[in-house]
Deep mutational scan, measured.
Amino acid sequence: PQECLLLEPGLNEIMANSLDYNERLWAWESWRSEVGKQLRPLYEEYVVLKNEMARANHYEDYGDYWRGDYEVNGVDGYDYSRGQLIEDVEHTFEEIKPLYEHLHAYVRAKLMNAYPSYISPIGCLPAHLLGDMWGRFWTNLYSLTVPFGQKPNIDVTDAMVDQAWDAQRIFKEAEKFFVSVGLPNMTQGFWENSMLTDPGNVQKAVCHPTAWDLGKGDFRILMCTKVTMDDFLTAHHEMGHIQYDMAYAAQPFLLRNGANEGFHEAVGEIMSLSAATPKHLKSIGLLSPDFQEDNETEINFLLKQALTIVGTLPFTYMLEKWRWMVFKGEIPKDQWMKKWWEMKREIVGVVEPVPHDETYCDPASLFHVSNDYSFIRYYTRTLYQFQFQEALCQAAKHEGPLHKCDISNSTEAGQKLFNMLRLGKSEPWTLALENVVGAKNMNVRPLLNYFEPLFTWLKDQNKNSFVGWSTDWSPYADQSIKVRISLKSALGDKAYEWNDNEMYLFRSSVAY
């Protein structure tokens, strides 16, 4: 590609939709070469300064400071330590791993069909083939991996386009969902002041979706909304933040926050679980009234959910574990990228498509890292959202599997949720969690119950496949010279610098 592309739109479109291996590689590498390399010296300084700040406030390091958001002291029976968070994340991840490994094996087999000769049947997945710029969410792999393609499509993007949905309609439908469970409408100022579409040439905007509580009843969302099912669900997520903000607005200023950061992320995700169900999509006209649910549509639905929800958990866990180790000084600065990709291979089963030396800073190419967000919130929120969903479905008197529950129109479920939201940070999160779900610790069981039918199906699908991955295989081993030459021509001086062995191999191949 010759034109100058922004991340959004532009590069993200390539990473969402392109099936051209080399075009995807160009976009993936260009973003890291342009952005990651510029941020490397800044990120090194950032780590030093943030650690100084944390230690001045009596924390061991900046990662310890972040984990302090979960700490509860002096509340008998509800205490929770920063170290306990690490333990809980690690042991819940071990419980999730078998499901993830089977999802990984299934996706690898489907990617082998889409990119023959580029995928190893026992290796890691190349990082640039996973549906977005970071491989964070695998949602866009659904069209390549759908188990029963002859069934009606449960990705309702086409239906939204056919019905001329726009950003306003998407957010109005999200608002209807919250109102149906007894939560309030958005304010008039929300509709007047939010930026729900890309302003285009009028001004440059950071398009990463964010929710804003500017105080004095001024709530806004910034999002360059596209007419897709993914953005339909994202709208519910962002509006969930606003509902939380509005619910605790009466609290004293210092207590106007989520019980912990994971709670804030979980609220909209609960609504997304219901909004994505075929039952709900039928009720708002995005699935045909004669759409029939059966075992095959159930597996299609659960796989689509797993690509988004299960596929991202190792990504989140590994990223934050790397940062915690960096802040603690356990990874020397001259080994940041080496350790990043070692951990990516070992924990996530994902491999870099071309080698990256220590001039890169791949983590900082992600919005949340370069903008100083702690990231473990996206792991804890996933466990909380299924715990909350299970409890709210019980309040809504849902009968049947958890993945079929739609809590819309249940004011009982809405009241149970609101009673927790309005507390803000005035009560320990362990107590707030217990008030809703009857337990005071994160628990992976509801998530595993939700995906149980899919897990059973995946194990059957993978019975003749290798489950797990070898960390030795690299996608650039066989194609390295071709890849390096093409990237050198595209990126010039910003391309990865060849070492002596690679230059010798190149000259030998040319001479041959």
Rank of each mutant, 00 (worst) to 15 (best):
R136D: 02
R136K: 11
R136W: 07
F137G: 06
F137S: 08
F137K: 06
F137Q: 03
T139D: 03
N140G: 03
N140A: 06
N153T: 05
T187Y: 07
Q188S: 07
Q188H: 11
Q188F: 09
Q188A: 05
G189D: 15
G189P: 15
G189N: 13
G189K: 15
E192Y: 12
E192S: 10
N193C: 14
N193T: 07
N193Y: 00
N193F: 00
V206C: 09
V206I: 09
V206R: 07
V206H: 08
H208D: 07
H208L: 07
H208Y: 09
H208I: 02
H208P: 10
H208F: 00
P209M: 12
P209L: 12
T210W: 08
T210L: 09
T210G: 07
W212C: 13
W212Q: 13
W212I: 12
W212N: 13
W212Y: 09
D213Q: 11
D213A: 09
D213T: 12
L214G: 12
L214I: 13
G215F: 01
G215Q: 05
G215I: 13
G215S: 01
K216S: 15
K216D: 15
K216H: 15
G217M: 15
G217S: 15
D218Y: 14
F219I: 13
R220E: 03
R220L: 12
M229C: 08
M229H: 01
D230C: 03
D230M: 08
L233M: 05
L233D: 11
L233C: 07
L233P: 11
L233K: 04
L233A: 09
T234R: 06
T234V: 03
T234C: 06
T234E: 07
H237P: 11
H237T: 07
H241N: 07
H241E: 01
D245G: 10
D245L: 12
D245K: 11
M246K: 14
M246Y: 12
A249I: 01
A250G: 05
Q251F: 14
Q251N: 10
P252Q: 10
F253C: 13
F253G: 13
F253K: 11
N257C: 01
N257A: 03
E261W: 08
H264V: 10
H264P: 06
E265Y: 02
E269S: 02
E269T: 05
E269P: 05
E269F: 08
F301G: 07
F301Q: 09
K304F: 04
Q305G: 03
Q305R: 08
Q305L: 01
T308G: 04
T308D: 07
T308F: 03
I309W: 03
I309K: 03
F367S: 08
F367E: 08
F367P: 07
H368G: 05
H368R: 05
D372R: 02
D372Y: 06
Y373N: 12
S374A: 07
S374M: 03
S374Q: 01
R377G: 06
R377Y: 09
R377S: 04
R377F: 05
Y378M: 09
Y378N: 03
R381E: 05
R381W: 08
R381I: 05
